[in-house]
Simulated assay, not measured.
Amino acid sequence: MAKKGKDNKTKRISVPSAIPIRNKKHYTFIVSASPGPHPKNFSIPLAVLLRDELGVCSTQAEAKKIIKQKNVLVDGRVRTNHKFPVGFMDIIFIKKLNKYYRIEIIKGKLKAIEVKKTDVKYCRVTKKLTIKNKKISIGLHDGKTLIGDNNIKVGDTLKISIPEYKIIQLIKLQPGVNCIVYKGKHGGKFGKLEKIIEQRGSMASNVILRDEQNKELITSLNYIMAIDEEFFSKN
């Protein structure tokens, strides 16, 4: 009889390169992420984050216990599912450590970077729709939707309060703004947006960034997020 239902585990050797794993040869399998706000190939199951990335515990059983005891908050909300997927720009609070972390991209991998206490999250605008009563629905990279206005464009960044998810500030994607590349071969690099190169048809536009060494970096418009100076003040 054929197997039915979803897979609860993934072979460590086949884990997507963006997911940090201590040693892919140490165990045969790791837990698979549940369906959630981030795609499976670009998110870390909560138990894997605690064990392999943060080193809070040494086994999955210990990770599950910590999570079930409501010691982990994602974007200001308690998560008790050890398979919950955390992804780019999520804010993690570990009560056991009394520390905050932000999921960033370092050399193409998702990494938990310690930051000062924060109730703000950066979200990239991925969709914009007009809905009932002429309201503007804004779709964000983490799957959330908000009601915004026409001044917000796809590609812009919103600074959102957590856990309320209210708009605090709009960062326009325009020449001169600081950006982080979060996908592709340049994932994890920073630079100022110099120019947007429009493409014809359905092809995504490209952008030219200029890094601190004054080197030119060309990548897809869909691979960058606009940020502000406050992003760099982590401590």
Results as ranks from 00 to 15, higher is better:
residue 3 K to T: 10
residue 5 G to H: 04
residue 5 G to F: 04
residue 6 K to N: 13
residue 10 T to L: 15
residue 10 T to D: 06
residue 11 K to F: 14
residue 12 R to V: 13
residue 12 R to W: 04
residue 13 I to F: 07
residue 19 I to W: 00
residue 19 I to S: 03
residue 25 K to Y: 15
residue 25 K to I: 12
residue 26 H to T: 14
residue 29 F to I: 01
residue 36 G to I: 03
residue 40 K to H: 09
residue 42 F to M: 08
residue 48 V to H: 04
residue 51 R to Y: 01
residue 51 R to E: 10
residue 54 L to E: 07
residue 57 C to V: 15
residue 59 T to A: 05
residue 60 Q to I: 15
residue 61 A to F: 07
residue 62 E to R: 10
residue 65 K to F: 09
residue 72 V to W: 02
residue 73 L to H: 13
residue 77 R to S: 13
residue 79 R to S: 05
residue 79 R to I: 10
residue 86 V to D: 01
residue 96 K to N: 12
residue 100 Y to E: 00
residue 101 Y to V: 02
residue 104 E to T: 15
residue 106 I to P: 04
residue 108 G to Q: 03
residue 109 K to V: 10
residue 110 L to V: 07
residue 111 K to I: 14
residue 112 A to K: 06
residue 116 K to E: 10
residue 116 K to S: 09
residue 117 K to L: 08
residue 123 C to T: 12
residue 132 K to R: 12
residue 133 N to F: 11
residue 135 K to T: 10
residue 135 K to W: 01
residue 135 K to Q: 11
residue 135 K to I: 06
residue 139 G to L: 01
residue 139 G to V: 07
residue 140 L to Q: 02
residue 143 G to D: 03
residue 145 T to Y: 13
residue 146 L to D: 07
residue 151 N to G: 12
residue 154 V to C: 02
residue 155 G to K: 02
residue 156 D to M: 02
residue 163 P to D: 06
residue 169 Q to R: 13
residue 170 L to Q: 12
residue 171 I to P: 03
residue 172 K to L: 08
residue 174 Q to L: 14
residue 175 P to M: 10
residue 176 G to E: 10
residue 181 V to W: 06
residue 183 K to A: 09
residue 184 G to P: 03
residue 184 G to S: 08
residue 185 K to V: 14
residue 187 G to E: 06
residue 187 G to L: 04
residue 189 K to C: 04
residue 189 K to F: 00
residue 190 F to M: 14
residue 193 L to K: 04
residue 195 K to E: 15
residue 195 K to V: 04
residue 195 K to L: 12
residue 195 K to R: 14
residue 196 I to G: 03
residue 198 E to C: 11
residue 203 M to I: 14
residue 209 L to I: 08
residue 213 Q to M: 14
residue 213 Q to A: 14
residue 215 K to Q: 15
residue 215 K to R: 13
residue 217 L to W: 01
residue 221 L to C: 00
residue 222 N to V: 11
residue 225 M to P: 02
residue 225 M to Y: 02
residue 226 A to H: 03
residue 227 I to K: 02
residue 229 E to A: 15
residue 231 F to N: 02
